[in-house]
Structure formats: C-alpha cells, structure tokens
C-alpha cells in the first residue's frame, strides 16, 4: 500500500466507529484505549501533523494559503508517512486553491462513509452545540468548513466540507481512486458483512473470527463506556452530549421535527436517492 488510505466522511457519519474497529483490527483484535489507540488511524488534518510536514505553522497562514498548501502537504504525507487516515475533507477545490486538499495522486484508496442526512442533522446538532435548525442550515451550506476557530488555536487545520450533498458526491465521483462506499445504516444492520467487506477492500484479515473479534472490541457500548469513565479527547468543546451519544439509525423520526426533516429532503433529495435514502 502506498499513499493515503482515507476513511472519509461528512462529520458525524460513523468515521470514529470505523477507526475504533481498525484500531483493534490492526493490532490483532486487541482491546482499544479510546484516547490512545485511535492514533492507528490518525486525523489527517491534525495541526501537529500538518505543521510537521508543511515545515511551518499553519497558524501563521491565511485561510487561502492553507488551502493552497494543503495538497502539497498531502503529497508529502503520502510519500513520507503513508497509511490510514481519517478525514472530513470534501474532495472539492476550496476557494482560492487550485486542487482539493487531498489530490488523487496522494490517495491509495478511499473508504467513504455515508449516513442518512436527517440523522446526521440530529447528531451534528449535539456534537457542535447547534440548534437543529442551524444544523440543517449548515448541512445545506456549500461554504461550510471546519477547523477554524477565530479566537483560539484549533487542534485541526481548516477543512473545506461544503454541503452534505456536495461532500458526498465529491467522494462518490472521485476519479482515479479506488473507492468503497459504506452506509452507516448497513454497518449497523449487518456489521459482520459490512466490516468484512471493509477488510477485504483494505487487504486486511477478513476471516469471520478476526472481524467478529474487532467488532466486539469496538462495539458502541464499549466506546460509550470508556467515554463515560475517562472522557474522549476528540469530543467537541461546544458539544451538548457525549460523543458516543446514540449510535442508532432512524433517530430523526422522533428527534427531528417534521418540518426540518422535510427541509433536509428538499435540499438533498437527489443525492439521498442516489445513495438509497428514500
């Protein structure tokens, strides 16, 4: 494997679950420490990683300079530190840049996780400390980005997310890269089958025994239990709920007012239909 193997998703779509699974699976199914072992699949946009490979501090750069620099740094990371990485970047070209933050030639393969945007809206509201209304609005915002805190240093560098629809399609339509799309709902409905597919795609041990063992170590109750006991360093500062909050599909039916659910569908219907959310 050479280059970056990405676990790519819009925020709150199951990325951390896959990382937890891989953190165990890559270490022969051993139990995971939530606050240490997710580093098996580190965040590509971590400020320290980006600063190290860029050879300067992103906090001294303008947003446009960061957008120009990121593809160059991605290529450098792909060359010098290839492996698994998590990202919420879209595969779109941010304003002022000439290419996406992670250009295709830096990528080995991509696992793209997609989740019903109505559930994403509920989860993102709790994670970022937004109202449900705001959450739905931001998912429609084609200029949405994360990793930028105006008043203090953010642990990540800036990521151009765009709207939920644009984000999902940017990866689904990525040319020139090997891609596996997984739906969060399918991961929940049949974990063994979905994660076996994941392991096969990543050239990892896909035997039933190994996959089941890693699934057991990364089950929701174990992760939520660890967070309850020792906290989770990746939880947002503005969050209003635990990071591992529900871990369910279809929560929007009770948690999202009908008018907002309709707004999500109105905005994202085409892409929702494309990935099977009727």
């Amino acid at each position: 494997m050479s280059g970056l193997t990405l676990i790519a998703s819009y925020p709150k779509s199951g990325n951390t679950w896959l990382r937890a699974f891989l953190a165990s699976h890559l270490r022969d199914g051993r139990p995971i420490d939530l606050n240490a072992d997710l580093s098996e699949v580190p965040n590509l946009t971590s400020r320290s990683l980006q600063d190290c490979h860029a050879g300067l501090e992103h906090s001294d750069l303008s947003r446009q300079e960061v957008a120009l620099l990121r593809p160059l740094t991605s290529r450098r990371i792909a060359r010098e530190q290839p492996g698994f990485y998590k990202t919420h970047d879209s595969n779109l070209v941010p304003p002022g840049a000439r290419e996406p933050a992670i250009p295709p030639d830096a990528i080995d393969r991509v696992v793209c996780i997609v989740r019903d945007p109505r559930d994403v809206a509920v989860s993102a509201a709790a994670h970022f400390g937004w109202s449900l209304d705001d959450s739905v609005d931001r998912m429609a915002d084609t200029a949405f980005c994360i990793g930028h805190s105006p008043r203090r240093l953010n642990a990540n560098v800036e990521q151009w997310i765009s709207s939920w629809s644009a984000h999902v399609e940017s990866w689904l339509d990525a040319g020139g890269v090997q891609l596996l799309m997984l739906r969060y709902e399918d991961l929940l409905a049949d974990p063994l089958e979905s994660f076996t597919q994941l392991c096969r795609f990543l050239d990892l041990d896909d035997t039933r025994h190994a996959v089941s063992r890693s699934l057991e170590e990364s089950r929701f109750s174990a992760l939520a239990g660890q967070e309850a006991r020792g906290g989770f360093r990746e939880r947002s500062r503005t969050s209003t709920a635990p990071f591992f909050r529900a871990g369910k599909a279809g929560e929007w039916r009770t948690a999202l007012p009908a008018v907002l659910a309709e707004r999500v569908v109105g905005t994202h219907s085409r892409v929702m239909a494309r990935v099977g959310y009727g």
Binding site: A54, G55, L56, L61, S62, Q64, E65, L69, R76
Partner: peptide, 20 residues
Amino acid sequence: EISPLLQIDGTGAGLLQVPM
C-alpha cells in the same frame, strides 16, 4: 525542496515562499 514552501541549495542558501 525541503518542505512545500522551502528550497535549499548546495551553498546553504534558502528560499522561502509564502503565497500572499
């Protein structure tokens, strides 16, 4: 090229380019 925005030559001279 030592890093994306920095080159160094054999004489020990360096060139840093910050886009803006």
